[in-house]
Nucleic acid binder design. Sequence first.
RNA 1: GGCGGGUUGGCGGAGAGGUUACGCAGCGGAUUGCAAAUCCGUGAAGACCGGUUCGAUUCCGGUACCCGCCUCCA
Length: 482
Amino acid sequence: MVTIRLHNSATRKKEEFIPLDPSIVRMYVCGPTVYDRAHIGNARPVIVFDVLYRLLCHVYGAEHVTYVRNFTDVDDKINAEALRRQAAGAPGTLEDLIRERTEETIRWYHEDMDALGALRPNVEPRATEFIGAMIAMIEGLIASGHAYAKDGHVLFRVRSYQNYGALSGRSVDDMIAGARVEVAPFKEDPMDFVLWKPSDDSLPGWDSPWGRGRPGWHIECSAMSYELLGESFDIHGGGIDLQFPHHENEIAQSACAHPHGKFARYWLHNEMLQVEGKKMSKSLGNFFTVRDLLDQGWPGEVIRFVYLQTHYSKPMDWTEEKAKAAKATLFKWWGEVRSIDVADGTVSAAVTEALADDINTAGAIAALHALAKQGRWADLKASAQLLGLLDERMGGWALPAITGVAAGTLEFSGEATAAVRDTPASILGSRLAEFRARKDWSSADALKAAIIDSGAQVHISKTDVQIIPGPDFDPAKLEALL
RNA sequence: GGCGGGUUGGCGGAGAGGUUACGCAGCGGAUUGCAAAUCCGUGAAGACCGGUUCGAUUCCGGUACCCGCCUCCA
């Protein structure tokens, strides 16, 4: 069996991955707050942990892996959006509007992440479905002295958990010294964080022992991972920005609520994404959603490839230049593997080993290049699919450009069949061949340049002329030359 | 201010204490009327300053710069 090694944020070391129970490998990843379209930064953990999920399935068997990723559908940003819609005259109760908004956003999220080739997790729990579990956990924390109720709030007593700060390498005292936060009057200690907060009539709320209210942000992941994966599970993933305070608080809650459990054993954090070398932000005008990129014509597979070129532990820069290069590479590979049956190939050990070495996707891609260089197309296809690439379900973008020009072969010197003789490519190819035969070089060059301008490649050999669409082929431009 | 991460050739981007990463671009050659196609080959690196070592881009320390978190944020 392949040995998987993962960099564990909790120990700051690369460790051999040994599941608690190899018959059920369990992974939890923090999912989105569903208030708006996912931006391209949100896509990074999705893609990173999708590759890890695929690797785990490959190694342990898909039926032996449980991957949970939550939807946070209780949040003030969601409430704010619903209130905005209500104020704008949208019909229905606030609850209806919230439900509408979260349903819509989840649908978008699925569409967009599907387009990036991310497999759906086995379970996608919604926070609102686990309110009871959260309340039960909070009650337990109060009973054991790790939490206290005050003014309709329930707070976690950070000082009651000795290891607080271990994950993110902080000490409570240092944080207080450097804190820039105003301390709420209901807190015993400035670092205490909210488990439950009161809701007024204008906000969604649930009945609880502390009055009508709603959960704090961190408790949902502790409650849902416990309900779905148990008090000890294998991998917990998310963006590095969640390391503190979110994951730190999750650990504190879970460790105190289930003192016999280990909670998550391997913590993985992906680094952030930048755009053209700068932090993505609305004010810089470099803020994109995944949908924006898809609508701009970037195939999901190309976006995915760009992400996989950078190791998850390093900051990744989204640039158009990278996307262009990725598109060209994939297009080239598609041209070779399109008609190949993936069942004829085997996943290259070099690819598996790269992925098993802390999800080294860039290394895996290098191994794919090696397969391509050796012309091992079936192996390339099989190996690439472990990365979620060169899969027919994503490859549509590379196909229409070819089939849109000619349904069959694009070669036409010698004996073109009637079926291909009349395609734009064959007509133009024949014309070019004629110019060449006549040694009318200026006409030939002009035609060739025009064909190339349409995004096609012109292959001239001794025996024939071929016009082959390239990654940016525009059929309309080619047809305009007729 | 506190904590964490990064800095590799023209660009992107890995691994490994000592032997070619890889891709794109470039350059040279083959082929070609020509080449943007195809094939073959090839130069080029590791922020800066110290230390450890027979030997460091790879380990350790410091400096500079960049990024993130500490406040909703993947």
